[in-house]
């Protein structure tokens, strides 16, 4: 009995590897934008900036309260219907938009919690020497909040890498889309998706290693 077509699997590795960069790009770009947006939201929430605070709360609520797949379809199929100019949104753009907004909503909350967790006396000390709110955030609060938020943010990044696989539903040929095509051609679904799964797994493991390394570095100031 033919258990597993190992030869086919090995042959598939270089084929699928060509699509890995796109997967990483989707997640990488999504993460950068999501982080920027999340920091912005977190600061708005912490400082309770009027109007923006309320808008942020609604935004976070919506993007946490609805499935990512629904959001992706909204951006890809829904937006062009609203305005013909928006037909320029291709699958890759829609994916990045979806990932950015979806994950920024989650990350904003963990960044906010990390900011609030920074010892209040330190923020007072920063103000007492005449720092502006911005200087205080940049030099004292955010560096310490980063350390607290890092493990959670890395988890979201890992989640985001896996979530890029949804892009194939928008016709984007990234790792998942490519695997789907290969499998449909060979009918060796099990082999093909095992190869894809292992690739995702290796990438995530590498990131976990990086996370440990970063945590040790960031904790240096706090060890006795």
């Amino acid at each position: 009995m033919d258990v597993l077509n190992v030869e086919y699997m090995l042959g598939l590795v270089p084929v699928l590897l060509r699509y890995l960069p796109l997967t990483l790009q989707l997640a990488g770009i999504g993460m950068v934008f999501a982080l920027i947006l999340a920091c912005l939201f977190a600061v708005i929430r912490v400082l309770r900036i009027p109007v923006l605070n309320q808008l942020t709360i609604v935004f976070i609520s919506f993007f946490r309260g609805t499935p990512l797949l629904v959001q992706l379809f909204l951006f890809y199929y829904g937006l062009p219907q609203l305005a013909s100019a928006l037909t320029v949104i291709d699958g890759i753009t829609a994916t990045i938009m979806g990932l950015t907004m979806h994950f920024s909503a989650y990350m904003a909350e963990s960044i906010r919690a990390a900011i609030v967790g920074v010892d209040r006396s330190q923020t007072e000390a920063a103000l007492s020497i005449g720092m502006t709110n911005g200087q205080m955030m940049r030099r004292i609060v955010l560096p310490q909040a980063t350390r607290v938020a890092l493990p959670t943010l890395m988890n979201y990044f890992i989640d985001m890498i896996k979530a890029t696989s949804l892009a194939f539903t928008l016709g984007v040929t990234e790792l998942m889309g490519a695997t789907q095509k290969e499998a449909a051609g060979s009918f060796l679904y099990f082999e093909a998706f095992i190869v894809a799964a292992i690739m995702y797994w290796i990438v995530v493991e590498l990131l976990s290693k990086l996370q440990n390394h970063l945590e040790i570095r960031l904790n240096r100031a706090y060890s006795r």
Partner: peptide
């Protein structure tokens, strides 16, 4: 409580 900047 001193309130030193813990990251510095």
């Amino acid at each position: 409580n001193y309130a030193l900047f813990a990251n510095k």
